[in-house]
Amino acid sequence: MLFKSSEIVEFAVAIERNGEAFYKSLLGKVKSGQAHHVLQYLAAAEQQHIKDFQSLRDRLGDYQAPQQYDGEYEAYLTFLIESNVFGKAPEVEKLVAQIQTDQDAIDLAIRFEKESILFFNELLRLVSESDKEPVKELIRQEQEHILKLVELRKIIENA
């Protein structure tokens, strides 16, 4: 399976859509007002990321990353796509249904952000130099989300 860069970005859009739905579904699971506030912020951020990735997708051509042997990069991306639970809405629903505490919700949100960063770092190999900065900014924002979630986890643990 050969991937065009625009197809990879489309998968990133799907991750962000599922991320937005994920954060909105977590709102009904958390009890803390602070957790509720942070999750609303993150849902809105994912909505903006969808727009940003759609804009990036519209600018991309059919660039393919260099590889050491035929199929190397495609195999790696296939693994990332298949193993990214947040690329599959039914899997997200199952995980959300298992949440018992605010801590569970925060831990799952951190996992989402980490998996997103891993995938988005791979996008950097698929975009032109002029498109690298927007992707780096999205990665930076995802890292900021992790920091917000870690801070929230500390607050809830100490409450």
Rank of each mutant, 00 (worst) to 15 (best):
M1P: 07
L2V: 14
F3K: 01
K4R: 13
K4C: 01
E7I: 04
F11K: 08
R17D: 03
R17E: 13
N18I: 02
E20R: 13
A21D: 08
Y23M: 05
Y23V: 03
S32V: 04
Q34H: 14
H36S: 13
Q40K: 13
A44W: 07
A44I: 07
H49T: 09
I50H: 02
D52P: 01
F53I: 03
L56N: 01
L56T: 00
R57V: 05
R59C: 01
G61E: 14
P66T: 06
Q67F: 04
Y69C: 07
E72T: 05
E74C: 03
Y76T: 03
L80K: 07
N84E: 01
K94E: 08
L95K: 14
L95A: 13
Q98C: 05
Q100F: 02
T101K: 08
T101Q: 07
D102P: 12
Q103I: 15
I106W: 00
I106E: 04
L108Y: 07
F112T: 01
E113H: 02
L118C: 03
F119A: 00
F120E: 04
N121K: 15
E122F: 05
L123C: 10
L124C: 08
L126N: 05
V127A: 11
E129Q: 10
S130N: 08
S130C: 02
V135W: 04
K136E: 13
K136T: 09
K136D: 05
L138W: 06
I139P: 01
Q141E: 15
Q141G: 15
E142F: 05
E144Y: 13
L149F: 06
L149T: 05
V150H: 09
L152V: 04
R153F: 06
K154C: 07
K154N: 15
I155M: 10
I156H: 05
A159V: 03
